[in-house]
Design a binder for these strands. Structure first.
Length: 463
RNA sequence: GUCCCCAUCGUCUAGUCGGCCCAGGACAACGGCCUUUCACGCCGUCAACAGCGGUUCAAAUCCGCUUGGGGACGCCA
């Protein structure tokens, strides 16, 4: 395959959702794999529901996911005259006709068909009336009376539909605007699109669009219909399932490469490989091995995937990414040199940036504001426990320099010299430092805290 | 109602055009090891070819039917 050109064509009536994001990723990957082009087209012909803020949001999400597009953005509303020209061509060639049936009349026809148990459709009343242009008139396609429309879908294989199932669809509305199917065909043709990858819900539109391509005498692109993403309960994804827009995952502290990796594996596979670098994705994604069955979204696996990338990424980068979350958590602005050791201590203990930032809290509040988990405090701040803290304080105070290594040595010496077991000393110390039985290595915690904070915590806990 | 599509462990999936699959990997769950906590890591356990008929020496893989899902039937996209 050479000269692959794909496009992602969202309509700006909402934020970019994970379903759309996955479609975009597939389109982007296919283009990048074959060294082709990937275009972005804003399908904003629904004037009532389209909003600029949604376009902005979608673009922001695309950038965040790292899906760069080629060339300029296309807005359908700016191309009304282009679509009209193509409709006129169809009128001239006899492939389309004017219709003055009102929407109410058409609805009556459909209702009548429904009553008879037939497929609801326009009955072709104006098909041979030879009407000309006029107020309130739309233009319809003169659908062939017999035959089948057949196409080979990249994911579903051969699909065949009898034209008898299709009615004479509207190409240009009474207000002069093109309908979706008309605009899509014209745009895809003019943009040179070779592969149309889109959601499953468009399969039934495909035969209609192919009919338009044929009437126009244009080459038909290759189609690939990816199944929709279901909720964890196998039901249609909805607000009930929590976060669905990629912007929400971004706000929750997910890494874009994790979301991309997870989404791409939902419906596509490369043997048993689960984790991919972006380069591998581009190398392996050739448009094959797409699963025709719909997949359920599994938040747990997404988390696992995210945790993986957090552990793999350079600390400096992780520190930079977590900074805004630390600030948002109310822990203030921290310099990189403070953030890096924190990330090193907690990256393996958090599944996302937000949770990691929250895990920093015990180490960032002053000793007297540290909150204790009651259960742990009661259990470990015993007389014996406090005694250890009392005796440890001067030992740590004497550590010079106050580093992870010297603290570790001092703590080990204390345990050994007194014939103790680590289990006797570590729990009260940990609870004094963290407020609960969790966190990273004691030596690292103390080194990060510094001498004054460490001693203040021991003193407070020892009473 | 009509048309189209789909169907392997709880979930994502491998299974390249029938045999090497009494079905493999990953997430989750559970158990263990490691360990000063929590994690990470490692080891292990549980667990699926929707059902029924064909075709064939041989079927998760091919065909048909049934059942169960989903989608579409707009002068929305």
């Amino acid at each position: 395959m050479t000269n692959v050109v794909t496009r992602f064509a969202p309509s700006p009536t909402g934020h970019l959702h994970i379903g759309g994001a996955r479609t975009a990723i597939f389109c982007w990957l296919l283009a990048r794999h074959y060294g082709g082009r990937f275009h972005l087209r804003i399908e904003d012909t629904d004037l009532l529901r389209s909003k600029q803020e949604y376009t902005d949001s979608i673009l922001a999400s695309m950038r965040w996911l790292g899906l760069d597009w080629d060339g300029e953005l296309t807005y359908q509303t700016q191309r009304a005259d282009v679509y009209s020209r193509y409709v006129d061509k169809l009128l001239e060639s006899g492939h389309a006709y004017w219709c003055d049936c009102t929407p109410e009349e058409v609805e009556a026809m459909r209702e009548e068909a429904r009553q008879k148990g037939l497929k609801p459709r326009y009955n072709g009343r104006c098909r041979s009336r030879e009407l000309g242009p006029g107020e309130g008139r739309c233009v319809r396609l003169k659908t062939p009376l017999t035959g089948k429309v057949v196409f080979d879908d990249m994911v579903k294989g051969r699909i065949a539909v009898d034209v008898a199932e299709l009615d004479d669809m509207v190409l240009r509305r009474a207000d002069g605007m093109p309908t979706y199917n008309m605009a899509v065909v014209v745009d895809d043709y003019e943009m040179g699109i070779t592969h149309v990858i889109r959601g499953d819900d468009h399969v039934s539109n495909t035969p209609r669009q192919i009919l338009i391509y044929q009437a126009l005498g244009l080459p038909v692109p290759t189609f690939g219909h990816v199944p929709m993403i279901l909720g964890p309960d196998k039901q249609k994804l909805s607000k009930r399932h929590g976060a669905r827009a990629v912007i929400e995952y971004q706000r929750d502290g997910l890494l874009p490469q994790a979301l991309v990796n997870y989404l791409v594996r939902l419906g596509w596979s490369h043997g048993n490989q689960e984790l991919f670098t972006r380069e591998e994705l581009i190398e392996f994604f050739d448009g094959r091995n797409l699963n025709p069955a719909s997949a359920a979204f599994d938040p747990a696996k997404l988390e696992w995937c995210n945790a993986h990338f957090m552990r793999e990424m350079p600390l400096e980068e992780l520190a930079r990414l977590v900074a805004p979350f630390v600030k948002e958590t109310g822990l203030g602005d921290l310099p990189q040199e403070r953030l890096i050791p924190l990330c090193e201590m907690f990256r393996e203990r958090a599944n996302d940036l937000k949770a990691m930032a929250e895990a920093f809290r015990p180490l960032l509040v002053p000793a007297d504001e540290l909150s204790y988990v009651e259960k742990d405090a009661n259990k470990h701040f015993t007389d014996a426990g406090k005694e250890h803290l009392h005796r440890l304080a001067p030992i740590f105070a004497a550590c010079e320099p106050f580093t992870s290594e010297s603290l570790d040595a001092a703590l080990n010496a204390y345990v050994a010299d007194n014939g103790l077991k680590f289990k006797q000393v570590a729990p009260p110390l940990r609870t004094a430092l963290m407020g609960f039985m969790g966190g990273s290595h004691l030596k690292d915690i103390m080194a990060f805290l510094g001498r004054a904070e460490t001693l203040a915590r021991l003193q407070r806990a020892a009473g």
